[in-house]
Amino acid sequence: MEIIYIAILFFSFLAGEAKSLRFSILSLIPHSLLIVVVVFIIGYVNHIPALYFIAVLDLVVRAILMPVLLLKGLKNRLEAEIKPSISHPLSIALSIVVLSIGYHFVEIFKSSYIPHVISSFSCGLTLFVYGFYLFISKRDMLKMIISFFIIENGIHFLIISMIPKMPKFIEVSLTLNFIVAILFLVYLTIRLNEVFVREEIKKLKESNSQRSQL
């Protein structure tokens, strides 16, 4: 399991730090697929059949629907990320620190204070913290949505590890909220991209007409 958690954190690192937005979004697919695998294994090991349903739901929503929606947000824009508020090399270094040291500390905290939670707790909390770091350091709208996605996945993991027998109804409602939020975010991103493109075309036309007048 430990390997899978580290792989999840690695893919979230790729999603957070890749300069190409398409690559970032595609990195979310293995990230989410591994989450599905973990949820399924937790359900199997702890004999909680309800988690099988949650794993299927995660597969549909987190691994398939969300990346497809996010890819739609790339329409009418460059695929390179807008320059973040922290320079790229420094951000990579900070990400590695947050993910590796953060995970290590959370593991120690978990084993000394809350040893009864399921092992995915440390991964969940690290994802939450890392997602939040990305959220405050990135300025690109799609990167902000990706960081929200990572925070949400972290919370999802935390819920599963702390309250594995959570009623399905609540898990489904939380996922529904998540879908609605992402839908609105992607819709707004697409509309904003359209507006930016229109503005660029207008500027280009104006400069062309000025040139022809000269």
Binding site: F135, F148, F184, L185
Partner: peptide
């Protein structure tokens, strides 16, 4: 649209 994006992302996080 910018205000809406800011609202939804900040409120959600």
């Amino acid at each position: 649209l910018k205000a809406g994006f800011k609202y939804i992302i900040l409120i959600n996080v």
